[in-house]
Amino acid sequence: MFSRRALEALTAAITGAFGIAILVQSLDNGIGWSSAGVESGTFPFMTGLIVVAGSLYNLARGWLRGREIVVTAVEFRRTVALFLPAVVYVALIPLLGMYVTSGLYLLATLRLQNGMSLLRSVLVAVVVSVGLYLVFEWSFQVALPHGLLGAWLER
């Protein structure tokens, strides 16, 4: 599904874009030497230059290397099946809070994706959510997000 060439190009593009962002941002901070010593943009600017140059090199080198497939369609589907629910999970946290979302996420992956029995998956989900609450909120006083749902309940 994806050739090495494609992945190399994608990665080099990401690193290169980051490099350009560093270059642009570091210009704001000043480059070179002033009465306050080495100016704060100097090192970021140098790293930016190196990142951009390195990304170009990796892009060219990656492009020349064969077209062999490094991620097959089956493999890609498996990865997405793992990552996508996790992304949805993270996206829902501001809405439903950490505890509810974690439970739902577990329930969804265990029950819907992997066909664990309803009773067992509910059990795991509840134990993990309550466990999180007990460890973080109750004993260590680290407040995890309650989300809009929590705000609504606490009204």
Binding site: T15, F18, G19, I22, F43, P44, T47, G48, I50, V51, G54, S55, N58
Partner: peptide, 8 residues
């Protein structure tokens, strides 16, 4: 590249 991204 990896090292310099880390620095940044």
């Amino acid at each position: 590249v990896s090292l310099t991204i880390g620095f940044a």
